[in-house]
Design a protein around this nucleic acid. Structure first.
Length: 607
RNA sequence: GUGUCCGUAGCUCAGUUGGAUAGAGCAGCCGCCUUCUAAGCGGCUGGUCGUGGGUUCGAAUCCCGCCGGACACGCCA
């Protein structure tokens, strides 16, 4: 916490809240407060109260039956002198402590954190997850199916969480746990062979042109036929058995399905800035589930019930064998086949043994909450009985994407909206706006801007809302490009870049900031205050794994910049005033671009 | 039946390990471009925080009841 960096003999904090926390704990110790009863409770304050407030004195005074104002006075009197250089301290109301950062402290921060490397190093240094290995499990589509709008959130939120964790100093492993195994492949293979026998040329042509769409079509053909005709169902099962026993022809077909699916997914991932380290799907764990059954039976966690292998959690009324409607965790089906639970357990073991993971995060629809609760309970007992340390397991659930009618988002004909089509429409809508607003730019640049704005708007619309709530998808809200939207942030970035272009300066160039005079105007100070709060937003994002806290911060930062931009001109004659404003602009650009990158968005020079 | 989540301004949402006068955006109204990008800025209007109790210095936040809504619950993922 509060690792200091020495600049010209002065210690410059990255995270002022952490520095205040440390100072308050020191003061509490020297004032004789019992450490166990006093937690500073430092938080970002509403602007009228300063930069930070500490509310911990109230709780402390309540517990120890003291007068809170007297306790606050004792604490303030004991504060280390270094803090007085950092912030002005005031006692307010019943015993709140308000801290207003001194302009010199703001300026020192701006001078010290001039590069993305500096920000990243400072963030990692103060981070509780620094050095840990985190597996982030996200996207996870099924092969032989196109990704639809339901797959958007996992991909976008997962990528942002991965980037936020990495910036917080974790070694992040991105794992795409694709659904590439299961009964549906028997049906696809059956339909594939039918098509092959009927018209080989047409099949190959379709597979060459739009391979994933063709396999998706074949699955529907097989599924429909199997529903209608028991003989087809039987034939599909036979194909599945052949696949599972390693038949070369069926294995080759299955491999091809996987390859074309992953290739199609990657096109979407490229737009969204996603690149996985591993794509270890369900099939990967196929030969690893037997060990799970053996171990769980061996340590008495699992038992047989109605022919299936199950785990009850009797301490939890809902998963207890005594529940009115028992809901055991089925880890092997009665027919002996593996299911979602089997492979998820094998996956946890693999991540523990192979990756030595300290955490495994599942960015999955919140409706699967029961599954993960049972999975984690099971893993906990299993690892405890087998003497293994258990990693942090967390289900980062997200809500459903709803249409403006409040129902899950569908096309007019009631089908799922393809993610590819959604992104394409976003780019088209953005293009119309770019043509309207910036028609003077060259055609190729307008197309590039439209892609960044369109795709970024979709990502940002998703990320800016608390991930666990359902969210209402609205083209108008998203593409109107006003308010808390990607376009507003990208526009702020483009305006800063434009200033540097006009001045012929490179952002962050020390010479351009030399001789800066002290911050003076209200908008300058407000912008500087918002800039140093990057540390708060970043640490809150790591602590909560909720990207929307970062979005909200970036939006406020862009707002502070826009107000500054309107009020205070950078390109002024006075070199000292110009230098301090150039520095503010450079840091605004740095923080906005760093933040947008953490969210997985690209930025623009012009728009 | 059991359980999870939700209900905040006309709309979409922040804010919930209890803190100060509940905040934004959109929509509506009024202003601001001969000056670094107006996809911008400033201002105004708008809320019994579903409802009734309780806990306490203090409740949108915690507890209980009720109303309304979403979702999940043996061999799908």
């Amino acid at each position: 916490m509060g690792r200091a960096r020495l600049i010209g003999g002065m210690s410059v904090r990255f995270h002022f809240a952490a520095a205040i926390d440390t100072a308050l704990r020191q003061a509490a110790a020297s004032a004789g407060f019992e450490a166990a009863l006093f937690a500073p409770d430092v938080r970002v304050a509403a602007a009228q109260h300063g930069d930070y407030q500490a509310n911990g004195v109230l709780a402390f005074a309540k517990q120890t039956k003291q007068n809170p104002r007297a306790a606050a006075q004792a604490l303030v009197a004991a504060l280390p002198v270094e803090l007085a250089a950092l912030a002005e301290v005031a006692i307010a109301g019943p015993g709140f402590l308000n801290f207003t950062l001194r302009p010199a402290a703001l300026e020192a921060w701006l001078a010290a954190h001039a590069s993305s490397a500096s920000l990243a190093a400072a963030a990692a240094a103060g981070s509780p997850i620094s050095g840990q290995t985190w597996v982030v499990d996200y996207s996870s589509p099924n092969t032989a199916k196109q990704m639809h709008v339901g797959h958007l959130r996992s991909a976008v939120i997962g990528e942002a969480v991965a980037r936020i964790a990495a910036f917080g100093g974790a070694r992040v492993i991105r794992d795409n746990h694709i659904g590439d195994w299961g009964t549906s492949f028997g049906k696809i293979i059956w339909a594939y062979k039918q098509a092959l026998a009927t018209d080989r040329a047409a099949l190959e042509a379709a597979l060459a042109a739009t391979p994933l769409e063709e396999f998706e079509r074949l699955y529907k053909v097989g599924n429909t036929a199997a529903d209608a005709d028991p003989a087809v169902l039987e034939a599909s099962r036979a194909e599945l058995v052949k696949l599972q026993s390693g038949d070369p022809e069926n294995t080759a077909i299955w491999r091809r399905i996987g390859e074309v699916s992953v290739a199609a997914f990657q096109k979407i991932y490229d737009l969204l800035g996603i690149r996985f380290d591993h794509t270890l799907g369900e099939s990967f764990y196929n030969d690893k589930v037997a060990r799970v059954y053996e171990e769980l039976l061996g340590c008495g966690v699992a038992e047989e019930s109605q022919g299936a292998l199950v785990v009850f959690h009797d301490e939890n009324p809902r998963y207890s064998r005594h529940a009115e409607r028992p809901n055991p965790f089925i880890i092997r089906k009665a027919d002996g086949a593996a299911n979602y639970a089997s492979t998820d357990l094998a996956t946890i073991l693999y991540r523990a043994e192979h990756f030595k993971a300290d955490a495994s995060l599942y960015v999955v629809d919140k409706r699967q909450g029961d599954h993960f609760e049972q999975l984690f309970l099971t893993a906990q007992k299993w690892f405890e009985k087998s003497g293994r340390p258990l990693m942090r397991l967390e289900h980062l659930g997200f809500g459903t994407v709803l249409g403006e009618d409040g129902r899950p988002l569908k096309t007019r004909s009631g089908e799922n909206i393809k993610l590819k089509d959604l992104l394409q429409e976003a780019v088209e809508r953005a293009r119309r706006l770019v043509d309207e607003k910036s028609g003077e730019l060259p055609e190729a640049e307008r197309a590039a801007i439209a892609e960044v704005v369109g795709v970024g708007s979709v990502q940002y619309a998703d990320l800016s809302q608390n991930r666990s709530s359902d969210y209402t998808f609205s083209w108008d809200k998203m593409i109107s490009l006003e308010g808390n939207t990607a376009a507003y942030l990208l526009y702020a970035v483009a305006r800063v870049r434009s200033i540097f272009r006009k001045l012929g300066l490179q952002p962050g160039d020390a010479a351009s900031e030399a001789g800066a005079s002290p911050l003076e105007t209200g908008p300058e100070l407000a912008l500087a205050r918002k800039l140093v709060q990057f540390a708060d937003a970043q640490s809150a994002a790591v602590a909560t794994l909720r990207p929307h806290v970062l979005c909200l911060y970036l939006y406020e930062l862009a707002g502070a910049f826009s107000a500054f931009y309107t009020a205070d001109k950078v390109a002024v004659e006075n070199p000292a005033v110009r230098a301090r404003r150039v520095r503010l602009c450079a840091r605004t650009l740095l923080v906005l671009e760093t933040g947008l990158q953490l969210l997985g968005l690209r930025t623009l020079d012009r728009m």
